[in-house]
Simulated assay, not measured.
Amino acid sequence: MNRRDELAANLADVRARIDRACAAAGRDPAGVALLAVTKTFPASDVALLADLGLTAFAENRDQEAGAKTAELAELRPGAAVRWHMVGRLQRNKARSVVEWADQVDTVDSGRLADALAKAAGARGGPLDVLIQVSIDGDPARGGCPLPELPQLADHVAQKSELSLRGVMTVAPLEMSPAQAFDALQGAVTRLRDDHPVAHVISAGMSGDLEDAIACGSTCVRVGTALLGSRRLASP
């Protein structure tokens, strides 16, 4: 099986999983976006997935993403794709990231929001962002603790250079995905009262997307189930 056929089969499997999960939750599959996490995989794979109809791709390392987005532009000139930053982001990388990312999904502090706003000032339009939420408050993994979400959301919303689109989370290992995503859903319901445009819930990956969809996720981030086992990242 060639690589295009392999990716096409994987994509069909993932879309079928999303359809089944939506059916079980009584939801329309059109309300769940698929974000392909392409970290450590080559731009040629991104090009093939774009040929298969995917339009949203995610990277977690600025240096790798900058080169990959440029290479994709050469492989598929004019391809209508959006790039997301889904890795932890240091403030000193903000200017570099806004050169390639259409959306940053890992804003977890006011200082990072400030840095991104400053860097995005010359974009010609606001940078879409998600607040990364920490369900268990563990600082080692990053993310804004749930009790601090309203304050950070207000801070982001005050930045004209940023557009708050919603939240993102990863289920902690010590919690069941259903428990984690249910906690997030409750926080987002309250968040939308003050920020109605913050409608995105990015939750669920290859192993737990069904639980996330059951709890209201509007975007699942899938890497392994689409592209296969991770390749070793370059040093």
Rank of each mutant, 00 (worst) to 15 (best):
K93R: 03
A140N: 10
L149N: 07
R165C: 10
P29F: 02
D182F: 02
G125F: 11
A67P: 08
L146N: 01
P42S: 02
L35T: 12
L164P: 03
P77C: 03
L227I: 04
A23V: 00
N10F: 11
V37G: 02
G216E: 03
P42Q: 06
K93M: 06
S206D: 08
A214Y: 08
R4A: 13
A183W: 00
D211H: 00
R27Y: 04
V107I: 06
G78W: 12
F181G: 00
G110E: 14
A23T: 01
P172H: 05
A30R: 11
L127Q: 01
G228L: 05
G216T: 05
L35K: 05
I213M: 00
K39Q: 00
V81G: 04
L232R: 15
A16I: 09
R17M: 00
L11F: 06
P177K: 02
R165W: 09
G53H: 06
A12G: 07
E148Y: 12
A16K: 13
L146Y: 01
L162F: 05
S176L: 13
V220Y: 04
A16H: 13
D193M: 08
E99A: 15
E6H: 13
L7V: 08
L226Y: 14
L152S: 03
A203T: 07
L130T: 01
V222S: 03
H84D: 01
G223P: 09
D128A: 15
A30L: 10
I213L: 06
E210H: 02
L209F: 09
R17Q: 13
S160H: 15
V167Q: 07
L173G: 01
Q179F: 04
R165M: 12
A233E: 15
A79V: 14
V98Q: 09
A9E: 12
E174V: 11
W83E: 02
V222C: 03
R165A: 13
G137P: 02
R3M: 06
W83G: 03
W100G: 05
T106E: 12
S217N: 10
Q158N: 10
G125Q: 15
V156C: 05
L184V: 12
L34Y: 11
L226T: 12
A115L: 09
A73R: 15
A79T: 04
T106N: 08
P147V: 04
L54E: 14
A80F: 09
R230K: 11
D105N: 01
K68F: 03
G142K: 10
R3P: 08
L226G: 10
L191D: 13
E174S: 13
L227T: 06
G26D: 11
L152N: 01
A21L: 01
V32N: 00
S234E: 14
D114Y: 07
S234T: 14
G53F: 02
R17S: 00
V98R: 03
